[in-house]
Design a protein around this nucleic acid. Structure first.
Lengths: 357, 357
DNA sequence: TTTCAACACGAAAACGTTTTCGCAAATAAT
DNA sequence: ATTATTTGCGAAAACGTTTTCGTGTTGAAA
């Protein structure tokens, strides 16, 4: 077992001081050609690599980003992680992932754990429970400790930080517009309980599209589904809810769903009821995941560009981290209270597939 | 901006030494009741939490696990991560995620980056490129540095470490058995090029099942699909390949696919060709992901229990890490070469849905 | 009164770096 | 020959902990 070699060991072996080794390895002009050569050769031979932890302690920065998301087995979130990882890697950062599991407490614990020196900044999406409780003190506490946060997708005005969001309103608007233009007269909305702002915005987009076309918004055509904790098993309930909904409202000829699961389930149910898609009913979903791509018929969706969201979030965070560096170097620490934070909106895009005409 | 408080600051403020503060906070009997109270109160007030990096440096362990996977936007891998995170959290560890993107070089870079003190051990699944190259020196180098590795799913005999694998052989065997018992006479196999051992094992299970039932294995019924780099766009190619395959072999009445994408695509194509599922053709896929669950008809699959794989991997790794601790404490470092490594096999389970009778 | 524990605390080392400063020797300028 | 400057290197501090080993004070035992 060859443990990693340290500066001290090299120094001892070559009979020079630690400082000399350090300088030689960084190519300092202070050290003579000769010794530099000798030390570098030795270091290469023993595959010396500086210890990251020691560097982190010395520099008081870890070059690590903490990602905190509600759930990882989820297409959208994993694409976001991929985006974050991509730019983080490129810019010399690592990512450490925490899962809140939609729980307020786990969110707090995870943050406190990582905020104790393990990471330089956070990229996160708020858990449902936190949104329900509307308790955001842990975010503000973290920020006031000097640890910047970037929130994505599920964000909240009460916290002053950079944000990257999907243009949920316009995404929904565009989707419903398309349904209308495609000739749909009675467009249903399949949505969740709207304490998650995201759902609320999509509903607003739906309503606005109808209004723009002078279509009366019939509240009977809006089905709100309770997406409580045990989502996994609720698939049958989901199906029967949609089934009954379609039975009661036989005039529906277009469906806009706020996620792809609702959309494909609606297609499934509709087909069982004898509807042809897209001939009798056209369907558009939000979120462009595997399901949409491989459903039969494949689903027209509003793509959220998760990877792009991740990239932008990472860039925003790292930009701020490195800006802070400069400020600190200048011994000029600006009053953060008037720092202007960026809210970046990522445009959606409609991916047309077989579920619309 | 309230930066985190340190022992030194508390010491200065309360006019005691750093050692006293440290001891008081850990409840040492050395310190008087009075001072202990005073110090603890002060620490609580200022929300003191020890700096993780400093602790890591001192203890020479980070309580962090490095996960290295080929791809994160992938149902199986994200369930594994979820499993790892779950037990890691419970046992006091964090996880830091690296993506190899199926690239040999990125795998190496990521490992070297994290091996410099950032993590105590690795849990990883080998990238395709590495498997092709059959170059495993970086794994062995890491291990001989004293950093344990646990490999899952895509493992390799050439590296001496703990492994957690799916019982691919028996999973395939059971699946094909079921097709046979359900009356299928001409069972096709949809597989990939088999440099990934996983695919090879599934093929062997398929062949064994046929053999057990004295069915002649017709090589015409095996379709090997080239799953090269640009998988995303290959969906049309996949469809046409399967289309032609089914046209040429009209007797096929059962399909076993080594992943769910091939399975649902096969269903899609078959239905376009006028087959009824499961009446004319029954289909079973490997990997129980979202697609299987929500396809129409829903797909019977061999579940790999990704979360369980993650949990077991994490337990194996942490067990070994903490066993090493004890050995080191004893100043008795065993010769690792004769350490016996565990290969844990996770049994598969068939989830029956609508694509089989 | 002297001796000895017990008590309460501080100094210092260690983990592995980087960096500032100081200092001797060698070279250059006067 | 004397002073000034460069060159090449080492000592030490610092990052924030924990822990070992002193050490001075107190109260009790001799």
């Amino acid at each position: 077992m060859k443990k990693k070699i340290t500066l001290k060991q090299i120094a001892r072996e070559l009979d020079v001081s630690i400082s000399t080794v350090s300088k030689a390895l960084s190519g300092s002009k202070e050290i003579s050609e000769d010794t530099t050569q000798k030390i570098q050769a030795f270091a290469k031979l023993y595959n010396y690599k500086p210890n990251n932890i020691a560097l982190s302690l010395k520099n008081r920065k870890t070059k690590t980003i903490g990602i905190l998301i509600p759930e990882i087995v989820h297409h959208f979130f994993s694409t976001v992680i991929r985006g974050i990882e991509k730019v983080a890697n490129r810019r010399g950062y690592n990512v450490i992932v925490g899962l809140s599991n939609e729980s307020f407490t786990k969110e707090i614990i995870n943050m406190e754990l990582l905020a104790n020196g393990s990471i330089d900044g956070f990229i996160l999406s708020i858990s449902k429970e936190t949104l329900l409780k509307q308790d955001y003190h842990h975010f503000n506490a973290t920020i006031s400790q000097g640890i910047p946060i970037v929130m994505f997708d599920r964000v909240v005005n009460e916290v002053a930080c950079d944000k990257v969001i999907v243009d949920d309103f316009n995404g929904a608007l565009k989707a419903v517009n398309k349904l209308i233009e495609n000739g749909c007269k009675n467009i249903a909305l399949l949505t969740t309980m709207d304490y998650v702002s995201v759902g609320r915005l999509r509903t607003q987009g739906y309503l606005k599209a109808l209004e723009n076309h002078k279509i009366f918004a019939n509240s009977d055509l809006i089905l709100k589904i309770d997406d409580s904790l045990n989502v996994e098993n609720h698939i049958e309930i989901l199906e029967t809810e949609i089934h009954n909904f379609l039975k009661i409202n036989p005039t529906i000829d277009g469906i806009f769903a706020v996620n792809e699961l609702y959309a494909v389930t609606a297609m499934k149910v509709a087909r069982k009821l004898g509807y042809k898609i897209p001939d009798d009913i056209q369907v558009i979903g939000f979120t462009d995941g595997v399901l949409s791509k491989h459903a039969t018929p494949s689903l027209t969706t509003v793509s959220q560009h998760g990877e792009k969201i991740g990239e932008q979030s990472a860039n925003l965070l790292i930009d701020r981290l490195e800006a802070n560096d400069i400020e600190n170097d200048k011994y000029f620490i600006e009053d953060d209270s008037k720092a202007d934070y960026i809210k970046m909106v990522i445009e959606t895009e409609i991916i047309e597939r077989e579920s619309t005409k």
